[in-house]
Design a protein around this nucleic acid. Sequence first.
DNA 1: CAGTATCCTTTATGATACTG
DNA 2: CAGTATCATAAAGGATACTG
Lengths: 130, 130
Amino acid sequence: MDGMPRWNAYSQDCPTRLVLDRVADKWTVLVLGLLGDGPVRFNQLRRAVEGLSQKVLSQTLRRLERDGLVSRTAFPTVPVTVEYTLTPLGRTLATAVDALRAWAEDHIEAVLDAQRAYDARTAGGNPGQR
Amino acid sequence: MDGMPRWNAYSQDCPTRLVLDRVADKWTVLVLGLLGDGPVRFNQLRRAVEGLSQKVLSQTLRRLERDGLVSRTAFPTVPVTVEYTLTPLGRTLATAVDALRAWAEDHIEAVLDAQRAYDARTAGGNPGQR
DNA sequence: CAGTATCCTTTATGATACTG
DNA sequence: CAGTATCATAAAGGATACTG
């Protein structure tokens, strides 16, 4: 009961890592958040997330689809329309991810304050640091 | 009430993005998880997370400290001992992050199944793909 | 509209060596 | 032990052009 540390090692192939490596990603979190409200089309997503290029969005969506979190439906209109929706599995994740977004909104001020305090403490000669 | 889409734009300087960009990160999530159980030393963290180099750990910890999520305490032993602990603010985030880790553990199998199914569907000529 | 393919730049990370 | 500094390399991302 003493040789065994309580901080488990996160080995690279443990389940948590396997999923977390994919899911704990900036774009994934944002996209999942947007899909939480219902089906959204590709270009709606791209426009909704500033700084997200179509290349990266495309990669993000394909990964989410592969992971079974999002489903892709193409409608045979001209030009084609494609909707992305959360799967039931994806909805359960979106809930957890939503907690993260809620935390961000609730604590943004505290974080910014901490950053300013840290920078003031730290920087003798590098103020206003990025 | 119709010109206004319900999918808010995540502008690059909106509060959510500002915090999420830092927090929705693989290493951050793992480190926060380990710190949730109590104070941990630098090299304990490094050893606990396979694949995490001291350089990246150092960066991650400094960022967490700057954000006011983690506090760093150096003990004047020889050689020096440094403990990292969650701040009260960090503890609130660790809770949300813990939901993510719990989700990963609960749904890893479903995700892996989805991946296998996707690859089988997709791959005509690229089986066993990474 | 919803992508894929390519090239090229920027960023992140890994290895190594060194300090208090 | 707990880091920082530096350099080389790999990975991610942006711009552009093109397709069904």
